[in-house]
Design a protein around this nucleic acid. Structure first.
Lengths: 337, 337
DNA sequence: TTGTATGCGTTATCAT
DNA sequence: ATGATAACGCATACAA
C-alpha cells in the first residue's frame, strides 16, 4: 500500500537520469549496462507506470466506453461479450456506462467525453433527441452509435433492419395460418419502439391483413411489463392466435401470462420475440425469435471504432446487419432447438 | 473534434490568470466579476476539465474496477447490476474486466492496479493461487474479494456459505424421498468447485446417505458442459432420481439432456441448481435453486469498497451472505413460480 | 549514449 | 482577491 515508485525512484536507485529510465522502459536504444541496471531497479521496486501521467503526456487514455441503458438486457449483454475481448486485444480497457434508461444520463456520458477519459465510445441510445445529435456533432472523441442516426450525423453507425425483421416474423406467423396477430411493443418514443411499431403495420399490409390497433399493446422492454401487457391485450382481444413481441424479454413475460391463463403455445397462440437472445432456447417452449444480430452489431461497432482510432478522421460509415428469423417451437410446435 | 479548451484558454479569454480560473471552477472564494467572466468564458468554450491532468494531480482516478471471469454468467451479471449504480452514485466510473477464466489475466489485472487507473477493485477470482495472495498483500489500492480468502489476507472479503447452501439442497431432495442424488460440479480446482464438491459429500453424510463417487460428474460452469456432463452421468448411473448442479447454467444444460432423453422432471429426476439466477424462473420446469445472494454480495462488496475509500486503512472485514433455498417445480412439481 | 529541461492540464502554495 | 509558480509522473527535444 506504499506510494508506488516512479521513474525518479528508479533513476536514483540505478544511478542514472530519469530520461535514461524512460528510454529503457520504452525500449529505446541504450547501453547494455544502463539497461541492465534500470531494469533490475525497476523489477526490485515493482515499478508500474502511472496511467494518469502517461495519459496526460500522450493524450490517450487507452480506455474505450460502452454506454447502454440496461446491462440486464441480454441483447446488450451479447454486445458486451463481443466488444470486451476486442477492446482488450487492442490494448484498451472497457469503461461501462449504464444509463438507466435516462436520456439525461446519456447526454451526461457524451459531455463526459470532453474529459477525455476514453478515446472513443460505443453507445446504444434508447431515444434520439436533438440534444443527442448536437452532442455527436461536437464530440471530442470518435463515437459509434448502435441504432439508427439521421443521415449526415458525424458518427459511425451500426444498424439493424427492424422493418425487415418484423416482416419476417409476421410473414412466418401468417404463413402458419394465423390471422389475428397481436403485437406487444415497448415505449413508442424509443428508437426501437417506434421502428418496430411502424414495421408491424407495414408487415400486416404486406400480408393482406387488416391493421387493428386493438391488437397492439404498449408496455416496456422487460419481462414483467411484457406479462402485464399480454394480460391487457388478451383481456381485450381474446381471439388473438399469434403474438409478436418487440423483444425476447417481453415474449418471456407473454409466455408466462399465456401459461397462467391456460392457453397452449403454439396451439392456441403462437409467440415470437425479437433479438434471439441466449434465453430463447431456455424458455418453454423454445422461442421463435428474430435475430437482429446483437453480437454481430457489437463486433462491428468495436471494429469500426478501433479502425477509426487507428486511421484517424474519415467519412462516417453505416453498416447494416441483416435480421434473420430463427424458428423454434413457440410458433411451430416442433422441437427444433 | 477540436483540441478541447484548457484553463489556459479560458484564462486568456477572460483576461485572468489560470489560478483564478481554477479557483472559480472549484468554487473557491472569488470576486463576483471575475467569477462571471470566467464562467461565461468557460461556457462559451465548452470547457470540460481533463481527467488525466486531474488524476495526476489529485492522485485519484475516480474509477473503480470490477473483475470477473465471464460476463455471460447471470450470477456475475446480478452483481454488476448492483455495483454499477452504487459506484455511479458515489461519483466513480466502472471499469469492467473480463478475465476469460484465465488466472494469468486475473494476475495481470492485479498488477495493473499499480498503474492507478482505478482507486479500488472488486474481484471474483475463480481460482485462488499463491500468486493471487501475494498480489493482494502488495496491492496499491483497496481490494474487495467476492469469494473466500484465507484468514489474514489483507482484503475485504464477501463470502457465501457454499457448505450450507449445498446442504439445504441435499436435505430438500432427501426430504422429497430421493435417495440417489447425483452431483454435477464445475472444475475442482476452482474455488466454488472445490467448496461445493466437499460440501456435497458432507451433506450426504448428514442425511445418512452413502457417498458414491460414481454419482458425481465434473464439467464446467456452463450450460453446454452441463448438458454433456448430465449425459455422461446418466449413462453411467441411470438410476439417479435427483440431480444437484453446482450452478444454474449447469442445471439448464441438465434439463435439456433430461428432456431429450425422455426423463420427466421432477417425476423421474428432480433437479436443483445454485445461484438462483433470473433465468431460474424462465426454465421449464422452473428451477429450484440455492440462492447464494449474488446481488447482495455485489452490493455489500461495493459498499465495503466505498467505505474503505472514504475512511482509509482499517482492518480487513469479512461479510458472509447466508444462502437460501428457493423451491420451484423442478423438484416439487408444483407450480410455484 | 546520456543528462537537462520543458510541457502535458490541473491544483495548490506562496507572495502580492 | 489575484497572479506567478511549483508539482503531479512521464516522454522527449535538445545539448552535451
Amino acid at each position: 500500500m506504499s506510494d508506488g515508485p516512479t521513474i525518479t525512484t528508479i533513476a536514483q536507485r540505478a544511478g542514472v537520469s530519469i530520461a535514461s529510465v524512460s528510454r529503457v522502459l520504452n525500449g529505446l536504444p541504450t547501453k547494455a549496462e544502463t539497461e541492465r541496471r534500470v531494469m533490475s531497479a525497476a523489477r526490485e521496486l515493482g515499478y508500474v507506470p502511472n496511467s494518469a501521467a502517461r495519459s496526460l503526456k500522450s493524450r490517450r487514455s487507452n480506455q474505450l466506453g460502452f454506454a447502454i441503458a440496461d446491462i440486464g438486457n441480454p441483447a446488450y449483454l451479447a454486445m458486451i461479450r463481443e466488444i470486451q475481448p476486442i477492446f482488450k486485444a487492442a490494448g484498451y480497457r472497457l469503461v461501462l456506462h449504464s444509463t438507466d434508461v435516462d436520456t439525461a444520463d446519456e447526454i451526461e456520458v457524451l459531455r463526459g467525453l470532453g474529459e477525455r477519459y476514453v478515446d472513443g465510445l460505443i453507445m446504444v441510445p434508447l431515444r434520439m433527441t436533438r440534444e443527442h445529435l448536437d452532442m455527436f456533432a461536437g464530440a471530442r472523441a470518435p463515437i459509434v452509435i448502435i441504432g439508427s442516426v439521421p443521415d449526415g450525423t458525424p458518427v459511425d453507425n451500426v444498424r439493424t433492419d427492424s422493418r425487415t425483421g418484423v416482416r419476417l416474423a409476421v410473414e412466418h406467423l401468417h404463413g402458419l395460418g394465423r390471422r389475428r396477430i397481436g403485437f406487444l411493443n415497448g415505449p413508442l418514443d424509443t428508437v426501437p419502439g417506434a421502428a418496430r411499431g411502424a414495421a408491424y403495420i407495414e408487415a400486416l399490409e404486406a400480408c393482406g391483413l387488416p391493421y387493428d390497433k386493438n391488437l397492439v399493446e404498449v408496455g416496456d422492454f422487460y419481462r414483467a411489463e411484457g406479462a402485464q401487457a399480454a394480460e391487457r391485450l388478451l383481456g381485450r382481444a381474446p381471439e388473438i392466435d399469434a403474438l409478436l413481441c418487440a423483444n425476447d424479454l417481453i415474449a418471456f413475460g407473454a409466455l408466462e401470462t399465456l401459461r397462467r391463463t391456460g392457453r397452449r403455445v403454439p396451439e392456441d397462440v403462437a409467440v415470437a420475440g425479437m433479438d434471439d437472445t441466449d434465453l430463447a432456447t431456455l424458455a418453454w417452449p423454445p422461442l421463435t425469435s428474430v435475430s437482429l444480430g446483437s453480437a454481430e452489431r457489437g463486433r462491428v461497432a468495436a471494429e469500426l471504432l478501433l479502425d477509426r482510432l487507428g486511421k484517424g478522421p474519415r467519412a462516417p460509415r453505416v453498416v447494416t446487419v441483416e435480421p434473420r428469423l430463427v424458428i423454434r417451437a413457440s410458433t411451430t410446435g416442433e422441437e427444433t432447438r
